[in-house]
């Protein structure tokens, strides 16, 4: 179990976000839960690619190769972070409009289909 502790803590962070989505009734809390899940998944990818005792994947001048961490998860996560921001922005815009329409963030009150 000793080599898996960061993965397990990352999983617990994921579960905190999942709990927020399933149990909370406030729309902003649900968006925050989705953001936490986003963070934990990004972190999980980078954790899987980490290699002990190696440097970052950038070559300095005159250097051909040196021990480096896996650059592929980092490239994928770089894309995922920016897309996560875009999705969060869209969700918040919809939440603001819903608040203007219904005067509340409570999802049990937002059930009337009008206009």
């Amino acid at each position: 179990m000793a080599g898996y502790i960061p993965y397990i803590l990352c999983l617990i962070l994921f579960l905190v976000g999942l709990y927020a989505i399933l149990v909370k009734k406030n729309l902003i809390k649900i968006i925050i839960g989705l953001g936490i899940i986003d963070y934990s998944l990004n972190l999980f990818f980078v954790l899987v690619g980490y290699k002990k005792g190696s440097g970052f994947p950038i070559l300095t001048k005159g250097e051909t190769v040196h021990p480096m961490v896996d650059p592929l998860p980092q490239a994928l996560v770089l894309t995922a972070i920016v897309i996560g921001l875009a999705v969060t922005m869209l969700m918040i815009a919809i939440a603001i409009r819903l608040y203007e329409k219904y005067g509340t963030f409570d999802i049990t009150q937002i059930r009337k289909l009008k206009g």
Binding site: G3, Y4, G49, D70, L72
Partner: peptide, 11 residues
């Protein structure tokens, strides 16, 4: 794979 020992095929 255990933390700190990735497979790293592509890299």
């Amino acid at each position: 794979p255990r933390f700190g020992e990735p497979k790293m095929k592509v890299a």
